[in-house]
């Protein structure tokens, strides 16, 4: 786990506004639309046309950039693949109750440890559960957990990092030491400790992982804000009289947010790996639950090295492909949005 933390920290992020642009496009569009409706009652045609023209003029460069982004995305086969995979996995996870032939904890004591067949696509495990169905059901648990963890951590990181970066000074130093401590502490141990305190379950590792992963987001956005803070447009905004809150939310955040988005996408994959690893050791889902890491652990204990490979291979492949999908998407996004690689 520390390896991926380090990779992210070790790289410096300098990116442009993409989400910021989209938000502004939508906001402006709505604004002008609202204004248009108001003036439609009076001098209709003339005012309308000039406003539309102005709106289109303002929007053009943003639309151009957006179209260019799509073009770049289309050109990179890996990102397209990643996007498709992610979408498919999420659809499969949501649709599991309808497409899985068996329930997640359905047991059939007469059909234990059967190799893959027509009836059981991925074979059965030591308790007769259908591996294929359990893999599908497991997607809901692992992917859902990862998305929750990353979302919460993103918010927490933005708040802490945002304060730290913008206010600076004493608070910045203190908060940075705190994040340093969290980063120095071995992540696995911390999550495991949380699990012991809260009792071993999937929820516990979710909370544990939330506690472990938030520091890197805080650092990331802090670094971004530090870089952006000194930019001329912020100085200009301040000179024009903008309040601190306005500066942070209208200028700094949109410009700094999307390396976070890239990191968040990549992290969903990494969190899935960590969660599966923790379950594998025995901290997460408890016996019987259809969770990928646990399935691998069971498979290992009940006959893997005696030849029953399917109990371990398929859940593992599921983890691999899911993590790969999110990594492909995140990587593609990063390449597309890095201003130095554009043009």
């Amino acid at each position: 786990m520390n390896t991926t933390n380090i990779e992210r920290i070790g790289m410096r992020a300098e990116f442009i506004t993409w989400v910021g642009n989209i938000t502004i496009v939508i906001k402006r569009g709505l604004q002008v639309h609202r204004n248009n409706h108001k003036t439609k009652l009076d001098s209709y045609k003339k005012a309308d046309r000039s406003r539309h023209r102005r709106w289109r003029e303002e929007l053009e460069p943003r639309l151009k950039e957006f179209r260019y982004t799509l073009h770049l995305l289309k050109r990179s086969p890996l990102s397209v693949a990643g996007l498709l995979l992610v979408v498919s996995i999420i659809i499969l996870a949501i649709a599991a109750p309808w497409i899985a032939p068996y329930g997640p904890e359905e047991r059939n004591w007469h059909a234990t440890k059967l190799p893959p067949s027509a009836e059981h696509l991925f074979g059965t495990d030591s308790m007769g559960g259908d591996v294929f169905s359990r893999v599908l059901w497991g997607a809901r648990l692992d992917v859902g957990l990862a998305i929750m963890v990353v979302t919460v951590d993103l918010l927490a990181g933005v708040i802490v990092g945002g304060i730290s970066g913008y206010i600076g000074g004493k608070w910045d130093e203190i908060l940075m030491r705190v994040t340093d401590i969290f980063l120095a502490f071995p992540g696995m141990i911390l999550s495991m400790a949380v699990c012991i305190v809260l009792g071993k379950s999937l929820t516990s590792i979710m909370i544990g992982l939330m506690i472990v992963w938030w520091p890197s987001y805080a650092r990331l956005i802090r670094g971004q804000i530090l870089a952006e803070r000194e930019r001329l447009y912020v100085v200009a905004a301040r000179a024009a009289g903008a309040s601190n809150r306005r500066i942070v939310f209208q200028h700094l955040v949109p410009n700094s947010i999307y390396p976070l988005l890239v990191a968040a996408t990549l992290d969903i994959g990494n969190v899935i790996l960590s969660a599966a690893g923790l379950s594998f050791i025995g901290f997460g889902a408890q016996a019987g639950v259809a969770e990928w890491g646990l399935m691998i652990s069971d498979g290992r204990a009940y006959g893997f090295l005696q030849g029953s490979w399917w109990m371990v291979v398929f859940p593992g492949l599921a983890i691999l492909i899911t993590a790969l999908a999110f990594n492909l998407l995140g990587d593609g996004l990063r390449d597309v949005l890095d201003p130095r690689l554009r043009r």
Binding site: A276, G277, F304, V312, I319
Partner: peptide
């Protein structure tokens, strides 16, 4: 492209599973 997919696979790989796979292939 091949090496990039390879690298991405490496980063997405659950280490414990890879270990198990290697055990299966080279031991069992």
């Amino acid at each position: 492209h091949v090496t990039r997919v390879f690298s991405l696979t490496g980063v997405s790989m659950p280490v414990f599973w890879l270990g198990l796979m290697l055990q299966f292939m080279f031991y069992y």
